[in-house]
Design a binder for these strands. Structure first.
Lengths: 330, 330
DNA sequence: TTTAAGTGGTTAAACGATTAACCGATAACT
DNA sequence: AGTTATCGGTTAATCGTTTAACCACTTAAA
């Protein structure tokens, strides 16, 4: 069914029907009503393809999520929340969301230009990555989330990671822990972790406690890695662990339980993200919390500003510490 | 940049360029090569809008996920895995995925026709829901996942839920538990749970153990609900719980820990889904496992069959029981 | 020698919207 | 009376592809 069918039925021109649908041009209230009625009765809905072809707007944005392993979307629940927030933000702006996983190394990004996306939101990448270069090369409005970017002209939304690191470490220090192991994940190219670590060091500095550099665990850690890492940490002399993700923290919890280390009795743990399960682990996780859904919303706001040609600003969201059961005095 | 620009540069017609891109029609190897080279050099990529307009194919499918609460995608990690599987399947079929959350009651489904989607995958709904009616009314290829549908002509992919129920209950019965509470979630309209329950009852029947009807917990349960439910169950006389979702099971674990009930010492728990955290809870969860990602893949396969006009069949995937620490002999 | 088939293209008409430019009829000002 | 706005539309070009129909030329078959 085409706009012409509606036009014929109402005995007006297609232009008028178009004007009614878009509240543009001049059309008398009566005609408008007649047209609207017909549209409803006929169940007509205009072709977005034809529309986009003419207007150069698709009302389509993509959220690009890196793969964890071959062909599989990053299964950290953290990402799901992020995406959920983006979806909600997009919905309120009448945008649709294309969900695309990419393999950072091999993927093709042609869909951006082919689909003439109004914009893209990239999560979890970093300066110099192929993903970032390919996306920016397409010169389409872009917002980066949870990515480490230095370049000033790139728009992004981040949380105050330095503060997060400072809060977590400060909490442990205040409890009397000085030998704090920090599970950062891969640091190279990952500025998010780098920022957090900076905050951690500041907390140590402010309290004039020497920072135990040898206790930084820089390897990438998922749940399984963290589980086996626990055995290592047991021997390390650390009395507390600050894990830069709750997922890893949960793995640690399991690992410690398995080798008979009591948390928080012998070792305290602070996590990061406050995921949906963080209050349900045993013991529940003290963690640095961020509002992931809000983050997604804001990303869309920023993207929308760019799409509409408005100047957009970098947005930094606050974090807070949630104290639960996994930390205790030394 | 248009196809015409490429055509002019190569001194051929647009038709030829189009033919080269689609490997159609007759074009000499040399010309084809010349065209391909130009396309690459110029960085040309064809407009999907224009293409769709002419061909009536968008290579776009939607996965429709119900909202958990207002404006927020269902945050069960289960859904994320499902969607991840769909994304992977779509990728291998050169389809893009539109992610859309819907509020079962109020949402508009016009995007299906407006975007002329090639097909949609609906998760987590049931026969008679507004979502199902609205989607089917649009007469677009559709596959339902994790939805309870009786109608024969509707294509869907499910797991063998009856068997899952039978496996879980059988396991508990074999351990000597007879007073088994079953946390089903809302049963009304939810055939998935209904099927599982049927399996549970069969297990009891086969062993000639009377099924304790009064221990069915039919309320909808998320993690928080389950946590408080634990207190209730403590008083119920049940020696085991079969929870139809690992998320709820995790809540129960926390709840039991809080009111001093040892698992599996005093109460055994069997979950369902085998989510990414199920091996990391304390104790780890015995659970009925399904391959959620494979499920997503198969959904796309089924959808693709429909799109291409091939007959498609209902697919039922197998489940298996994974024994971990949360169950023990009575 | 005529006819048929194959080769490597080209031409031009769609697809279904949007929108600038135009148009006739009143109404309102000088 | 003559000019100018305003109102409520219409006409037709356009967006960037695909594709059926056509064409000129060569080769093969009858």
């Amino acid at each position: 069914m085409r706009i012409r069918d509606v036009a014929e039925r109402c005995e007006v021109s297609t232009a008028t029907v178009s004007n009614v649908m878009n509240n543009k041009g001049r059309v008398s209230p009566e005609t408008a009503e007649r047209v609207r009625a017909s549209i409803k009765e006929m169940g007509f809905s205009p072709s977005q393809s034809a529309r986009s072809l003419k207007t150069d707007r698709t009302h389509l944005i993509a959220v690009i999520v890196p793969f964890l392993e071959k062909g599989k979307l990053h299964d950290n629940p953290f990402y799901w929340n992020l995406v959920s927030g983006v979806e909600a933000g997009a919905r309120s702006r009448k945008l649709n969301v294309l969900l695309t996983g990419v393999d950072e190394e091999t993927e093709t990004f042609s869909f951006i230009t082919e689909r003439q996306l109004d914009g893209v939101i990239v999560v979890g990448t970093h300066e110099g990555s192929r993903t970032m270069e390919e996306v920016l090369a397409r010169k389409v409005p872009t917002v980066f989330m949870d990515s480490f970017i230095q370049s000033a002209h790139v728009s992004r939304v981040t949380i105050d990671d330095e503060k997060g690191g400072w809060l977590g470490a400060g909490h442990l220090l205040d409890l009397g822990h000085e030998k704090v192991a920090v599970v950062t994940g891969k640091l190279e190219g990952n500025g998010v972790s780098r920022e957090r670590l900076r905050g951690v060091k500041r907390a140590f500095m402010e309290r004039k406690v020497p920072f135990p550099d040898d206790l930084i665990i820089e390897r990438p850690v998922n749940m399984a890695h963290a589980r086996s890492l626990a055995k290592e940490l047991k021997e390390s002399g650390a009395t507390a662990v600050f894990s830069f993700s709750d997922v890893a923290a949960m793995g640690l919890l399991k690992g410690f339980a398995e080798c008979g280390v009591s948390v928080p009795g012998e070792i305290s743990i602070v996590g990061y993200d406050n995921l949906f399960f963080s209050d349900y682990t045993h013991p529940s996780l003290t963690t640095v919390a961020q509002d992931v859904e809000e983050k997604g919303q804001i990303a869309v706001d920023l993207l929308f500003d760019q799409i509409e040609g408005r100047p957009s600003s970098k947005t930094v969201l606050d974090v807070k510490l949630i104290e639960r059961e996994s930390t205790a005095e030394r």
